[in-house]
Every structure is written in C-alpha cells, then in structure tokens.
Design a protein around this nucleic acid. Structure first.
Lengths: 341, 341
DNA sequence: TTGAAAGCGCTAACAG
DNA sequence: CTGTTAGCGCTTTCAA
C-alpha cells in the first residue's frame, strides 16, 4: 500500500504562476464563470494539464454553494440485485452532472438511518435520494424536511416530494394482455398478501385486462402467498388443483414463478404447453436460468435510479417543481408462454 | 421538494459566542484533540446541540489532512447481490471510523474508470477500495499508484497492495469433505472453464479432499461448462450419463447447481436421495428457493467489504503494512445432501 | 479582459 | 486549561 505522495499538491496558484496569470484567471478558465481571452484560457488549461493540476472539490464547495455530492439512502442494499441497479443508474446520472453518490444502507433501522442522515448533512450533500428496494409508500424522516429529496421506488403522501416508481397497474395490464393475446382465457394470478402498492397495482391491472377482454375474473384463480419460491410453489399447487385448470399464471414476481415451475414439475405439467407463466422483475438468475426461460416484465431499477438523480440535480440547480413519475415496464419475452393446449 | 433553508447555518463561531468560549475550544470539544475542562466541554456540546450545530466535514478536511471519504470502485455493480453485500460491509466499516463511501461502477470500461478515479481524486478521497464482483486477479490502474488502495474480491501481483479474497481452496475442501462425510465416494465436479482463481482454487480443494480420503480423482467426473444454469444443466446431463453414475456433485456455484437440478429432474433422478448437490455462493434466491433447498458454501462478500474498508482506514491512519487476507467460507447446510442410496 | 483581496468553516501553531 | 492568529484551496466581489 503506497503512502500519499509527499510533495505538495499543485494548486490553482501554482498553475497561475506557471501560466503567468492570476489565480482568479485560472479559476475562471475552468469554471467558465466569465469570458476569457481564448488564448489565455488555452494556455492556462495546457499549463494545468502539464503540471497535473486537479481541482479540489472541497475547496470549491466551501466557497460556493454545492458539494457535487448526493446522498443515497436505502433500506436493504444487500439482498437483491435491485439495489445495485438503482445505485448504478443514479451514479450514472450524477456523473453526467459532475456529481458523485455517497451510498448508505440503514438495513431498516431507524436510528441508524438518523445517524446516516446526520453524517450526510455533515458532508453538506446537495440532496438525498431516498430509495426502497421494493416499491413502498414511505414517510420521509423529518431530518430531511428542509432538504432536497427525491424518492426512488417509493412514494409518499407529501405532494411536495418528487418520486419515481414502476407503473404497477401497467405491469398487470401488460402481462395479462400478453397471455390473452396468446389465446388464454383461464388466467390465474399468484400474488402476495401484503398491503403494498405493487400488489394492489398489479392485481388491478390484471383485472382490468381481463375486463377489457370481456373475461370474468374467477376468484378461485386468484391466490395469495409469500413472494418467494415457496410461496409460488404453494400457489402453484393450489392453482393446478382447480377444475378446470387455469392454462396460464401471472405471478407477482420471478421468485414466485420459480415456485410455480416447481409445482408444475411435481404435477407433471409441462411449461409452456400445458401451463404458461409470466413473472415480474427480470431477475436474470431466475428468468434466464429457468427451463424454459421465463417471460417476465422487467422492473426499471436502473432507470428509476437515473430518474431520481436527474430530478434531484435539477432541483439542486433550481428547478424545484415536484414531479411524481411512474415508469413503463417492458415485457421480456422468453419461453414460458405458449397458446393453450 | 423543499428548498434548502435560507437562514445562515450555525457554525463553530456561533456556538462559541453562545457558550462564551473561543472557536478553538468548540473545535476541541468535538475533536477531543486536546483536553478541556469537562464542564466547559459539556457546556459547549450542550450549546451546539441546542443551536443545531452540525460540523462541516469539508471545512475540517480542507484544513486537516483527511476527507473521511473513501472511494469504492467496482466493475459491475448491477447484476448480482454480491456488489450490494460488499458495499454494505464496506459502508459499515467506514461508518465505524466516521467515514463514508463514494460508490462508482465502471461497468468494465477502462476510460470510464479513469474518469471516475479523476473525480474521486478531485474529491480528495482518503483511499480507494478496488472491488471486483467475481474473484479476479487485477492490475490496478496506474492513476492509483500513489494512493491508498485495498483490493476486495481481487488480488494483484503487486505485493505492496492489501487485498481480501475468499479462501477458494478451502471452499473446495469444505464442500468435498462434507460430501465424503455423508458417505459419498463418486463425487463429481461441475466447474467453469475460465482461468480464474476461483476455478483453480475450488478444483484444487476438491482434489485435495479426495486425496486425503484416499479417493482417486476420476477425470470423467470433472466437467467444465459456463457458470450459469445452462452450463450446470449441460454439466449435469453429461455427468448423469456416466456409468457408474456419480452420487454427488460439487458445483462451482449456485447457478450451476440450479442447472444440475434441472438435469436431474429431466432424468427423473431425485435430489438428494439419488444425487447430492453442493453449491457455492449462497445466493438466497436460488439456494433457499430450490426444491430441495441447496446446501452451499456462502461467499463472504459483506465480510470482504468490511475487511477492505477497515484495512484501508488503518492505512489512512498510518498503518500501511500490506496484508493479503483469505477469508474462510462457511458451509450452509440445507436439504440437498444425503447419504448415497 | 484581467487582478487583488476577502473569506467559505474549520484546525493547528503558537501563545498565555 | 484556553485564546489568537493564520491559513487550507478555491470563488467571488470589487476595481482596474
């Protein structure tokens, strides 16, 4: 591990001296805050390059009003690839505005979150992305009251907050319409029990698609279980016992789809010919790994991260108009849907 | 979206005035850099609390030598939960030292990485965690030459760099011994083809465990494929066609295990009674979701992140002795291992 | 088109 | 045990 170089860093005044101008001019050469003689400017830039000058964001921000740093606060960052996608998208958007992301996960602990906000405030971040890994309705901690905040994969009752979530209703619509278009009439829904926006929205979309196709919703084809493979298995077993059997299942997520595959295998029912399945998430590990591969709706995590950071930076730059966005989700067609037998 | 509060921030001098001491004393009350009269200190702290004073890390760092900020550079942060785990562990360790993590993913693009390093340098981070999502041997970009750097889930030829990786050999040993202890004699290995440390180490551990049990390695039981479910399926099909059939398979990772499950199902072979399987990773989605659930070796991503940040901060604080760590990986017993029929 | 000087909020000498 | 003073590296008035 090398230690930091001993020689003093080259600063704006070194560049100024070498280029034969004032520090002020060097500053302006970089910031463009005022017009310079193009030749002077070119000479300054070239000199800076040659000396290996790197501006000091701390000093800049101490004098100015921005730190070019955004705080990213999430609940659990560790259990799914979702977090990574949101962070990655947000990071990319931040980079487009010369900003950077400080990432913190509270693991759902309120006191830890409070400390993290304090820390971020201490670093004078320009704003906060308050993210959830699963679409939730949240109440933003009051320490964030007077800050720039954008919610990612979350909404809130506060209409002054910008937020971005997936279009859950659209997901239900897209998935169910796809199944209907393939010829299915008895389409089941394997969903979760909790009172969360994703469950409500997707189910409403499912029912709306059925209705618009003139299909009656059969309540015996709607089952609720936990949102994991075990829950999907349970739901699958129940659904496959119905008579007449559904010819397709729209699952709340890919994990439940995985369980439905297991139930179908156990019952000797083949996918997609005897049963079509559509999931939600596009967790590659599952969707691309299942046999047959899973047709699913991709959740726009990277896009939400990007949107949130872009919105936040716009607010930092003065456009504080709140916007609540609902992002479209694309169907990813793979091998789990076929016409009914 | 609320705009930042207009009123001037309370600074160290406001606190000093209100508490009837000098700014210096306030500074020391917080930093503990010199002894204060306990009463004075208490009064200062109380006053600061009352006024809602929050120190400004930028100002502190501009004067001092540290920014209390670490750069986290990774390749792909978005595709697996691994990244989240490493970040989460690193973030926790950083927090223990009042530091914070700026997270950047290059998506494997060298020029983008170079720009990110520049950005981080511009923020004067105290050091860099250079992380890979899959155990690799890397060469650190030369822009990082004179910086504090610790590798996470990666090694390098440079012995002056600290690094932390999983004990790959130990993984092979643990998995294979577990199978041997269950009574297996014909144990297959489904691994990947690439020239990466994880593949070499796990295979060597597998062979060592076989050897120490007096079992001859049967090359027909070692098959290589891609490290995903499709590869696992392919390997599984090949392995299950051997005569006599292996009674157990040690898979390079959980994803390949998933494919082996599919191959077994296709061949009508039941797990664990006719075939035992051990994976590596403990990707919950797979390991807990498969039927039966998968016995696997957990990769210590959070621990690597924690280790890397701790080591880096120790270096920042003066202990620059390089250390190359190899972390033990724990067996997670679930339902995919049983004695051979 | 360019400079000089002041100062962002804090800490570290150097006193006392 | 505590205060005074001088900056950290930059940007921003104010002047020229």
């Amino acid at each position: 591990m090398a230690t930091a170089e001993p020689k003093r860093r080259v600063g704006i005044r070194d560049v100024a001296a070498a280029a034969g101008v004032s520090p002020t001019t060097v500053s302006h050469a970089f910031s463009g805050a005022r017009a310079l003689n193009p030749d002077t400017r070119a000479r300054v830039i070239e000199t800076a390059e040659r000396l290996g000058y790197l501006p000091d964001v701390r000093a800049r921000s101490l004098r100015g009003s921005r730190t070019y740093t955004l705080g990213f606060l999430s609940d659990v960052i560790a259990s799914t690839p979702h977090a990574g996608r949101i962070v990655s998208g947000a990071q990319a958007a931040a980079a487009e505005h010369d900003s950077v992301l400080v990432v913190l996960d509270s693991d759902g602990m309120a006191d830890r979150e409070r400390r993290q906000i304090r820390t971020l405030l201490t670093h004078r971040v320009d704003g906060f992305i308050y993210a959830r890994m699963f679409h939730r309705s949240v109440v933003v901690p009051e320490e964030l009251r007077d800050q720039n905040v954008v919610l990612a994969d979350a909404t809130s009752d506060d209409p002054s907050l910008s937020s971005v979530v997936p279009d859950e209703h659209g997901i239900g619509l897209t998935a169910t319409r796809h199944l209907i278009a393939a010829g299915h009439r008895r389409i089941a829904l394997a969903t979760i029990g909790g009172d969360v926006p994703a469950a409500h929205g997707r189910e409403a979309g499912y029912r709306a698609a059925l209705a618009e196709a003139g299909l009656a919703a059969d309540e015996r084809l709607v089952v609720r279980a936990s949102g994991d493979p075990a829950g999907g298995y349970e739901a699958g077993v129940a659904l496959l016992a119905r008579t007449p059997r559904p010819t397709a299942v729209f699952c709340f997520n890919d994990e439940m789809s995985m369980g439905v595959y297991q139930a179908a295998a156990a019952a000797g029912i083949s996918i997609p010919h005897e049963l079509s399945v559509v999931g939600v998430d596009d967790l590659r590990i599952i969707s691309a790994g299942l046999r047959p591969s899973l047709t699913t709706i991709a959740l726009p995590h990277a896009e939400m991260g990007h949107w949130a950071a872009s919105r936040l930076l716009a607010a930092v730059e003065g456009d504080t108009e709140p916007v609540q966005a609902r992002l479209e989700c694309a169907l990813v067609e793979r091998g789990s849907v076929a016409p009914p037998a």
